[in-house]
Simulated assay, not measured.
Amino acid sequence: MSCTGTDILTTGKRIIVAIDGPAGAGKSTIARHLARHFGLLNLETGAMYRAFGLKALRAHVPLDDLAALTELSKETSIRLEVGEAENRVLLDDEDVTGQLRNPTVTDAASRVSVFPPVRAWMVKLQQQLGAEGGVVMEGRDIGTVVFPHAEAKIFLDAAPEVRGMRRFDQLGPEPAQQPEEVIRDLRSRDQRDRSRADSPLRPAEDAVLLDSTHMTLDEVVKAAEAIVEEKLAAMGEPAAR
């Protein structure tokens, strides 16, 4: 992958922006904006887990069978390619981008991600993708595990009810679930993410907490921009647009 447009990272350390937070917090939206705004690559790690969850479903591998999932990971290729509106997610060279927001796939991603061997495989892949810096990477454990030395760390959160309604609005005009079902599923996912033994969801000690419960999207965007701009200034880098 390569970055087009003005490159703010031609000298010195290439910045890594880590955005963590629970489901429905708006991480993908903010990451896409920051990538465009600052000329960085957007690596959506959640999409990578969803792609693996999709493969497990297709292969009829039980989502609680660690041995089978580990074997499946050994024969799985996941790549991200920069697209005009969002990243394209290639699962074994197939573009599966449009299939990854299905609630069943999202739930599968949460279930397979609790296993340490699966996470270790995925973390290694994520570290390879972001090794050179110049990226915005969002997920559940970017600032704590994948890139603990990232220069800019944001923990984006919101009340479960607010996040649930945002996720419901993403389901389109004929949603398969009712709002209360979406919120219930999101709470269940929160519990799994926060209580798993390996890399539980939590803010990094040096992350900036950004609660968007009572904020408009524009307000969240501006706050995130300011966080990154401050880090760039500390690194002596210009903030390109």
Rank of each mutant, 00 (worst) to 15 (best):
L210T: 00
P175F: 07
A31K: 09
D157S: 15
R36W: 12
A35D: 02
E174Q: 13
E132K: 15
G24H: 02
D7R: 13
E205R: 15
T70A: 13
I30S: 02
G130Y: 00
R50K: 10
L41A: 08
P179C: 04
A51W: 01
A207P: 13
S188Y: 05
M165P: 03
F52C: 04
L34T: 12
E219P: 00
G164I: 02
R119Q: 09
F52W: 02
R79K: 11
L186V: 01
P148A: 08
T10D: 08
W121A: 14
L217S: 02
R58H: 07
A31I: 10
N102A: 05
V96M: 06
D211F: 09
G26W: 01
V221C: 01
V208D: 05
I8P: 12
G26H: 05
E180G: 04
S212G: 09
T6I: 15
L156A: 08
V228N: 06
V220L: 01
L217E: 02
L129P: 09
V61N: 03
G26T: 01
A159C: 14
D65I: 09
V145E: 02
F38M: 10
K13D: 12
R101E: 04
V118I: 15
L171M: 15
D193H: 03
E181C: 05
H37T: 15
N42W: 06
T6A: 14
F38W: 10
L66S: 12
V89C: 07
I183T: 12
I142S: 00
K55P: 07
T70D: 15
T6M: 11
V96Q: 03
K124I: 01
A108L: 05
L54K: 01
M48T: 05
E75Q: 09
A59N: 10
A120F: 01
Y49R: 02
A197V: 14
V105S: 07
E75H: 13
L100D: 06
R166L: 07
I78D: 04
S77C: 05
E229W: 06
I142H: 08
L100G: 00
L72R: 02
T104A: 06
F52G: 05
V182F: 01
T104K: 06
A152F: 00
D211H: 09
E181P: 03
S77V: 07
E219W: 00
I19H: 06
L43D: 04
F155T: 13
L72H: 02
G83Q: 12
R192M: 14
A56Q: 07
I19S: 03
P200L: 11
G24T: 03
Q178F: 03
G39Y: 08
D169A: 05
P175K: 11
H214M: 11
V228L: 04
K13V: 13
A204T: 15
E180M: 11
M215P: 03
E181Q: 14
R241M: 08
R36A: 14
A233M: 06
L63Q: 07
P200I: 11
M48H: 07
G98T: 10
R192N: 10
H214W: 12
H33T: 04
L9W: 08
L232I: 07
F38G: 09
P238M: 06
L69T: 07
T4L: 12
T97C: 04
P238D: 07
I8M: 10
D20H: 12
L209M: 15
R36D: 13
P62H: 02
L171K: 03
V135L: 11
P103L: 00
